[in-house]
Nucleic acid binder design. Structure first.
Lengths: 314, 314
DNA sequence: GGACAAAGTGCTCATATGAGCAATTCGTTC
DNA sequence: GAACGAATTGCTCATATGAGCACTTTGTCC
């Protein structure tokens, strides 16, 4: 009777698991109690764990998924990856994880380049005081908001700098300019150029990405109209990274627009030793894939389902 | 900064737990990796388990709650207790647990006394072939169904006996008789008396209990009318055990009715070495309490929430 | 029925781990 | 600032545990 033998073993396994994990008896004791050798007890316990009869879970808002992180690192050649288990407040948990990562980053960065947006804001909130000592926080893309949400970009930088015992350097420029000449003029202007030079020297970058649709912060802030974005999408735009719209291959969708965008170039980001990319949420799966595949980041901080989406193809 | 120190420790604990349980690294390795001594790693792991950061669960239909079982044994002086975790099919899981218990019972009973009803039926179904060798299964209370469900009681006994390689002995009598004289006459009748004698000799009893309301099997089978039951409830009936209605103290509610009930007496059950009581479900919390408190059983097989209800009072 | 591969078993031994204890640090109270 | 008790730390040592291996059992194919 093979099936009943299997059932017997399974039942035995369950009893053993209970005695070991709930009653914390020793494998010897269990063996004596149930009439099996302690080696068999040990083997059945291993099986119980492998077969999922015994489930060990780490229940904590700051828990991570190290297994998936390893897969991401290996699959995409990343320097590091941080994956947070799915939950109802992923955005906040991912931001927390990014803040934790930044805090634990060694060597402590002397200059940190950051983008801006809702995600970065949230990371700033989750950072603890003293996360660094005397850090210079430089904006890496134009940050003056044209419409509402005044000062968001600058307060993010200020908060991160202040909590790291340092000071922010703001990029005094719009994100996107209307005319190419203006963009060139502003980029070479002493005050702006100096900031971009500091940005280029940063030891680490921390940035997020936007989705290419009318919900974009760039639309919200008045740099682009919903029609502009629709046009970009037609040309293959997946989303924006530090203000620059890219296609599925990670290249600027619209070279003209790209030239009118003020800030660190994508290639500078690609060349960076430590480029930390923070993404969360279903909507950003596509742009996340693009960023990771086109090697725009060396480190990713994300949620489990985004990570799964990245890993699932072919 | 006390709170931030606490937060740090907690975060460290989470990291340690991940490395230990998910990545199965050794405590040494973890210590080296995170810059703490291996003893601290060990201590934090213990804390993590105690504080519920690490949750170890045994996910299996036949899992049990040994901790609660121990409490039940101690609190009520039971010989044994079997508690199954709550789930959506408690009835079936509890029946399975009872079947498992019976199978593992040593010494293997030569004579088993059983009651009948939905619960017992289910236990019979869950028993495996060869659970005993040559067992005699005796009905301990009258079992002829008056209305529908013909033969239910006898098939239960037959199934248990057959699977145990033995034969059933049926009690050829109604559960409750209308007149006292008939009851006396039938109980002293050779065929019935012989069965009751065997029942009294049983090495173990297995029975369930009914709730005192119109859903009772005794109503269903036509022995009592819904009005009869309503009257009994008025007199304090909580439910029935082997066909006998008892009050909260475990005494017969209606001595007249009790005398007209054919089967093993409650005191015989109380005196038994091995009286296994199987109950499941919210509705039976009260009768379960009564049975346990009035020492009608020496072993209880039940679900977690029933057990919790038993344990919760003062 | 015999031969062979696969799975399972009992064991040795190196290693990982928890209990228990002395030394230290920390936080409080005077 | 001194004195005290409580918590925390690093450690020793006994014990629990898993890896690896020879041996046995089981199942399968000819």
């Amino acid at each position: 009777m093979p099936s009943s033998a299997t059932a017997d073993t399974e039942l035995l396994t369950v009893r053993i698991a209970e005695l070991y994990y709930d009653e914390n008896k020793t494998q010897d004791e269990i063996g004596a109690l149930l009439g099996v050798t302690r080696w068999k007890v040990g083997r059945l316990l291993t099986q119980a764990r492998e077969r999922g009869i015994v489930r060990i879970e780490i229940m904590h808002p700051r828990a991570r998924r190290l297994g998936i992180e390893r897969e991401l690192r290996e699959r995409f050649g990343l320097k590091d990856a941080v994956v947070v288990p799915d939950s109802d407040d992923i955005r906040s948990r991912v931001a927390q994880a990014a803040a934790d990562y930044l805090t634990a980053l060694r060597p402590v960065p002397r200059i940190l380049g950051i983008s801006w947006g809702r995600t970065l804001d949230s990371v700033a909130d989750h950072l603890g005081n003293g996360w660094a000592t005397g850090v210079t926080v430089v904006q890496i893309n134009g940050g003056v908001s044209l419409n509402r949400r005044p000062g968001t970009a600058s307060t993010t930088a200020a908060e991160i700098a202040q909590k790291g015992g340092g000071h922010p350097i703001l990029l005094p420029s719009p994100a996107i300019l209307e005319r190419l000449e203006t963009a060139r003029a502003i980029s070479t202007d002493r005050t702006v150029a100096a900031v971009l030079d500091r940005a280029a020297e940063a030891n680490a970058y921390l940035y997020s990405a936007g989705v290419a649709d009318s919900s974009s912060v760039l639309v919200d802030s008045g740099y682009l109209t919903p029609e502009d974005v629709a046009e970009l999408v037609r040309k293959g735009a997946v989303g924006d990274v530090v203000g620059r719209y890219i296609d599925a291959n990670g290249n600027p969708v619209d070279p003209g627009l790209d030239e009118r965008t003020v800030g660190l170039g994508l290639d500078q980001l690609r060349a960076a030793e430590t480029a930390i990319f923070v993404v969360a949420g279903e909507a950003k799966h596509d742009i996340a894939r693009t960023v990771v595949m086109s090697r725009l980041c060396s480190i990713i901080v994300t949620d489990e389902s985004t990570a799964a989406a990245l890993l699932e193809e072919q």
